[in-house]
Computed example of a mutant assay.
Amino acid sequence: MAIEFIYLNLFYWLKKTVTSKNRIQLEDNFTTEDNYNENEDKNDVGDNTDAEKARDDDDVVDDHQEEAEYLPEGDGPTATEEQHHKGLVTKDANEKNKPSTRHFIHGYHLIQGQMNHGMEDHIFAQHRNLDGYDLGLYAIFDGHSGHEVAKYLQSHLFENILSEPEFWENPVHAVKKACKATDDEILENIADSRGGSTAVAAILINGVKLLVANIGDSRAISCKNGRAKPLTVDHEPEKEKDLIESRGGFVSKKPGNVPRVDGQLEMTRAFGDGKLKEHITAEPDVTIRKIDEDTEFIILASDGLWKVMTNQEACDCIRDEDDAQKASKKLVKEAKSQGSYDDISCIVIIF
């Protein structure tokens, strides 16, 4: 009866939340158009630090949904993401009005690379309160063949996710449904046959629950007791060759180049890319994790960083930093020094 009472309360709250009058509006979107050059100050196209102070509270939110399993380091989560993760937030409806049980801060930084195109990375990094729940909303959108899709995602993806009526009770299904709806919007109104974007998005709930959704080859990792732990798996053509071929496509590799879907796209999942949509998908992998006391920080970054740094190298690079903004700048600077020519963007959340 107690569980039914909780779900009933959540139902009425959700019904109220998603009405047009109360439709979620996300603010403080971050974008950039600055050019890359050797002057680091001019390349600092995105900075932000947001600190949230938590009170001591013994009633830590219980992690009562099934955890995603992880393969050896670098291989990422398995198909347990398909489980219905009930009770994402709390077992007790009264918990929603309590402050975050862990202190956390975030910072972000991005620079334009030396490729023959304008800046295509976009970042979303925001802390907000939603009906008593303390949310950190973080995402990296890495565009290709233009920045329009990434910019659209920056303005609409979280709005679409949090407006899904099933988000609190069945978050995995809700996130996938929202991504499908967002991709449909993009294909109809935004992208031409070639424009697209990857996305890695994280929702931190009350400082102790983390939902991560990934489409493409941007990546999220956590650092626990000094060790890097993957939160996502890169969607690369060789890894998902069976998926591409089952949809009628093919994977090819020219000498000296990377494998590509239909000889064109370096990843198997992306928003937009209408010309290839029959062979690729915008369905995300979704994982839900508990942020325990051993978790030191989380990194989200575009492939401009991961092409030149391993997960562990990224963790080691900033482990001594206690300022999230300085940590994000340090990561970008290190990736640049390691020879990355791509756009580089990252978000660091420190606990």
Rank of each mutant, 00 (worst) to 15 (best):
A199G: 01
K336F: 13
Q126E: 06
G274M: 09
V61I: 11
T19K: 14
S302G: 07
A174P: 03
V149P: 10
L187V: 12
D323E: 11
S340K: 10
L187C: 12
I105Y: 00
D131W: 01
H64G: 02
Q338I: 13
T281R: 06
Y12V: 13
E67P: 12
A270D: 00
E82T: 14
W168A: 12
I24A: 10
I299V: 11
G339S: 10
D62Y: 05
D131K: 02
K253N: 11
D316W: 01
T287R: 15
R102M: 04
R260G: 08
A202P: 00
H109T: 05
I244Q: 15
N39E: 00
G87P: 01
G272T: 02
L211P: 04
D47M: 14
D63W: 06
Q65C: 12
S302P: 05
D41W: 03
F167V: 10
P165M: 03
H85Y: 15
T232E: 14
I111G: 02
G248Q: 04
Q65F: 15
D323G: 01
G196C: 09
V172R: 06
K209T: 09
D262M: 14
S20Q: 11
L305N: 01
K86R: 09
F271R: 04
H127Y: 06
T90C: 04
N37A: 13
S193I: 06
V45C: 14
K15I: 01
G263F: 05
I186P: 09
E321L: 03
C346V: 08
E188V: 03
T17M: 12
L162V: 04
I318T: 04
R128L: 12
F351R: 09
N206V: 01
A327G: 07
D44I: 01
D217C: 02
R219Y: 01
Q65N: 11
D92H: 13
T31L: 10
A51I: 10
A178R: 03
V200C: 05
N22W: 07
Q325F: 01
V18E: 00
N129S: 04
G249K: 06
A68C: 11
D234M: 10
I190D: 03
F11Y: 12
I347R: 03
K333I: 05
R289V: 11
A139E: 00
T49Q: 13
Q65H: 15
E95I: 01
G74A: 12
Q114G: 12
S328G: 01
G248P: 07
I205S: 06
N189F: 08
F351T: 05
G263M: 08
I6N: 09
D58G: 09
F30I: 02
T17E: 06
V348Q: 05
L265P: 04
V172Y: 02
P255S: 06
T287Q: 13
D134I: 00
D184M: 14
A201R: 02
E296S: 10
V60M: 09
D242H: 10
